[in-house]
Amino acid sequence: MAHNPSHLMPSELIDRCIGSKIWVIMKGDKELVGTLRGFDVYVNMVLEDVTEYEITPEGRRITKLDQILLNGNNIAILVPGGGPE
């Protein structure tokens, strides 16, 4: 099963997103959208031109960031291609 060419491993799927927009949904009320530059075995990710969305009691807070290293620990879902809007 490891060598079935039609079977895409999760890490290969993420690898195909390098250079493209990716939507990251974290555990809890946080989401980020940015261009994926790289990642490692823990799915820590380097993202560029990032927009961070946080749900706070005061409403939705949006933060723009140049370049970040995102800790893979609290990532729930990755959506290739881009963001909620």
């Binding site: 491993m9 890490s11 690898d15 790289g38 490692d40 075995v41 823990y42 380097v46 290293l69």
Partner: peptide, 30 residues
């Protein structure tokens, strides 16, 4: 930890977490 490399190939142009960490020492960060 963050020093590992990703599984698949084709990463020659990628900036891995390890690369990022090397590049930001001494710099202002959030």
């Amino acid at each position: 930890g963050a020093g590992g490399n990703a599984g698949g190939g084709g990463l020659s142009t990628a900036k891995t977490p390890a690369d990022f960490l090397k590049s930001i020492r001494g710099r202002p960060v959030v």
